[in-house]
Design a protein around this nucleic acid. Structure first.
Length: 182
DNA sequence: AAGCGGATGTCCT
DNA sequence: GGACATCCGCTTA
């Protein structure tokens, strides 16, 4: 079980370290296979201009959830590190509560269940109500990987600033990535 | 296989 | 008003 102190790491260390960790929300979830790091001096980060009503949770860490609405439609989940930093959960390998995830997503293809940040939010039932909640208690459970997996890095997806920074991390060769790494 | 347009909350200019 | 850490379905090849 990861607790607040485990999230008190520079976000460029935390984001790859979370690859292979298990993330459950009310017993539903799986193994994290894709993350992205964001921080306060990062032009692509929601925290770039300091705290606002939306991003307050990014400044409430380490060890809380930051949930935001993407494009007015999707709920996306970050695990917050030190002040102003966060790790966007972009994809999981589904392992627990698969039936529930299938129901929420309205499709059964395991490769498309949790491969994308909006999909993860929908599959895990994430809403605004999770924003700011600590990660070391209900409904969350985060467990570090038993053995450190092989992690690959590359440019982040779906952003227009700082596009060349290799701050996207993935489990090498996983079929559950939102996009392959080059 | 790839490219578009639609849905539409929150922030910033 | 415009951009955005997105996804889906419909269109064209």
């Amino acid at each position: 079980m990861m607790t607040a102190a485990d999230f008190d790491l520079p976000v460029l260390e935390l984001a790859p370290l979370l690859i292979g960790a298990t993330l459950l929300v009310d017993e539903v979830g799986g193994v994290i296979v894709e993350t992205e790091a964001y921080h306060h001096e990062d032009p692509a980060s929601h925290s770039r201009s300091g705290p606002t009503a939306r991003n307050a949770s990014m400044f409430a860490g380490p060890g809380v959830a930051y949930v935001y609405r993407s494009y007015g439609i999707h709920w996306c989940l970050n695990l917050v590190g030190p002040r102003g930093t966060g790790v966007l959960i972009r994809a999981l390998r589904p392992t627990a509560g698969v039936d529930q995830m299938i129901q929420r997503r309205g499709l059964a293809d395991p490769r498309r269940l949790c491969s994308g940040p909006g999909r993860v939010g929908q599959a895990l039932g994430i809403t605004r109500s999770h924003d700011g909640l600590p990660l070391d208690g209900r409904p969350f459970q985060v467990d570090a990987p038993a053995t450190l997996p092989e992690v690959v890095a590359g440019p982040r997806i779906g952003i227009s600033k700082a596009v060349d920074q290799p701050w996207r991390f993935g489990l090498k060769g996983s079929p559950f990535l939102s996009k392959p790494f080059r």
